[in-house]
Every structure is written in C-alpha cells, then in structure tokens.
C-alpha cells in the first residue's frame, strides 16, 4: 500500500498526475468544512493536557514594629498566587469507516506496475491524498485548524468563544503605593493579556482551479469516468474526517506544549521580577509608636512561562 500517481482526464487524453498540490488543498478544504477533531472552550474542567497556570504576586502581610520598623527579614514576603486555567476540551468524532471502503471501484485509478489501469485501495487513497492533507493541516495555516490569538476578530477565522482560554494577570504595581498604618490590600491584580481560541475557516473550492486534475474511477460497467465535484468532495470529506479520528499516523491531536507545530501566538504568563526584599516599603507610624512595613510585588515584567497550542499527528 502506497501513495500512487493517479490518472486524470485532460482534453481527450488520460495522463498521469505528477503534482497533486491543488487536489490536496481540496482535501484540506473538505476537512475544514467538517473537522474530525474539534476544540471547545469551557469555563472550567477542560482536558488536563490543555492546563495552564497564571501566576502573579501579592503583597506580604503588614509587619508591625514596636518603636521601630521590622526589617525585611521579619516582614512577610510577597506570595505567588497560581490559578490553573483549564478551559479547553478536545473532542474526537466517532467516525465509522466510510461506505466507499466496501466497493473496490470507489477510489481513483492509476497505472500499476504492469501498465494496467487499477483502482486504488483504501490505503492507497489515504496515503496519496489524505495523509498529505493532514500533514499540511499540521504544518501550515489550514482550514479547520485551531490557533491562539489575542485579537477578538481575525479575517478568515472564527473565534470559538468570547471566553478567553487564558488570562495573564499580574500585580498592579501602581496600586501598591502606601503602607500607611493599615497596609495595602494584598492582592491587587491587573489583566495583562487575554488569549482566545480561533478556528480557521474553510477556503474556496479548488475544483477546476489551476492545477486541478480530473480524477477518474471505474464505473459499474467497467468504463472510466471522471468524478463529479460533489462526488470527489464527498469522498475526500468522508476520509479526511475518518482518518483524522482513526488512522494511525494520521490522527490529529492538540495539546499545550506537547509535540507538533505551534498554532498561533505563544501564551505568556508574566510576573514582576523583583525580589520580596526589594519590595520592602516602610509605612506610617501610629500614635502608639507602632511602625508599619510591608513587602510589595515589584520589578519588571518577565515571562515566567510561555505556553503554545500544538497540533500533531500520531
């Protein structure tokens, strides 16, 4: 079983196709119209392989010195707040083997090693058209793929949900400005960036476009016949959906930071990089001669962790 060079009809001749790129693009389009692997945004309880952690710092508790400020070593440190985002679920469609598999004349024809015209087997068909299409979906920006963006709208794609899959929060250092004698509220975050899940739309049909080849099949009377647009599109659609869900080596799988190709922008969890001691701040003095100090989140924003949505075949 192997990838074949299919025959096609052109101007009264039967020729061997040497470039199937346009046909494979049609398979990709067919996948985009009805993907076998879909992602959904949920408010919580998503799949573990998509979990991400948002980290930010909060101030330490106020220290109170009797007659003098307590030093940084005796003033509670800033603390990390970690929030796990579990907002994506992956669904693999339950797709039965297409009915075409039971008809040995279903698939496009090619010249075999004996110069006979022979119909492809199902495996030949998957190797010739379907696996290259799924490889394209993994490697390139392709119809039906999911990707990440901070934008709210993108031409040629549809945002899956207005609910972000990740929100990067960070301590708002501008709000930690005065200890006073009551201290600052410990957790004062701001939203730095929200990340959304998009799905790329299916493009225009490639049927009849430059590079398209009219593939042929064997009719009931043994004659060769050119596939209609609807018939070949249905065959492609059925099999690319089936293979994406079932065929070993062609099944699609998304993850965060797993194997495969990055889809969209990186998701960055940022924090302020200052140490707790660097955020030590002396505050007010009460009439009773108590000295108040606190340690605040401080420093420059840095990327603590970067997450990537990945797509692979397995």
């Amino acid at each position: 079983m192997a990838a074949r060079s299919p025959l096609y009809y052109s101007g009264g001749e039967i020729l061997t196709a040497t470039n199937l790129d346009t046909v494979v693009d049609q398979v990709v389009r067919a996948y985009g119209q009805n993907p076998g692997v879909t992602l959904t945004v949920v408010s919580s309880g998503g799949d573990a392989k998509f979990e991400m952690t948002d980290t930010r710092y909060k101030a330490g508790a106020v220290s109170v010195g009797d007659g003098a400020y307590l030093p940084p070593g005796q003033t509670p440190d800033i603390e990390a707040i970690e929030t796990i985002a579990s907002n994506i679920t992956e669904t693999v469609a339950s797709v039965s083997q297409p009915a075409a598999s039971s008809n040995p004349r279903s698939f496009p024809v090619y010249y075999n090693s004996s110069n006979e015209i022979q119909a492809m087997t199902e495996t030949d068909f998957i190797d010739t058209f379907i696996k290259p299409a799924l490889d394209t979906i993994v490697a390139d920006n392709s119809a039906g793929e999911y990707f990440v963006s901070t934008l709210s709208t993108i031409t040629g794609a549809t945002r899956v949900s207005a609910t972000p899959i990740f929100v990067d929060t960070r301590a708002d250092e501008t709000l930690y400005d005065d200890v006073g004698i009551t201290g600052e509220t410990l957790d004062q975050p701001k939203t730095v960036n929200s990340y959304y899940l998009f799905q790329r739309d299916a493009g225009d049909t490639q049927y009849g476009e430059t590079g398209w080849v009219d593939l042929m099949y064997i009719d009931t009377d043994g004659s060769l016949r050119v596939y209609s647009d609807s018939d070949i599109s249905a065959l492609f659609g059925d099999y690319v959906r089936y293979a994406a869900s079932n065929t070993v080596g062609a099944r699609l799988s998304y993850s965060i930071n797993g194997e495969g190709t990055t889809k969209g922008t990186g998701i960055i969890d940022t924090v302020l990089d200052g140490t707790s001691a660097e955020g030590y701040t002396e505050g007010g003095i009460s009439p009773s001669n108590y000295y108040y100090a606190q340690e605040f989140p401080n420093g420059e924003p840095i990327a603590l962790t970067t997450y990537y949505l990945k797509l692979t075949t397995y």
């Binding site: 040995p104 004349r105 075999n112 004996s114 006979e116 022979q118 087997t121 064997i218 043994g222 060769l224």
Partner: peptide
C-alpha cells in the same frame, strides 16, 4: 490490450 482492474486486482474490463 489495456486491462482495467478494481482495487482487489480483479479485471473488470
């Protein structure tokens, strides 16, 4: 001759 075979290798024409 030109033989046309289905996916099983059976000559159909």
């Amino acid at each position: 001759k030109l033989i046309i075979k289905d996916a099983t290798g059976t000559a159909v024409k």
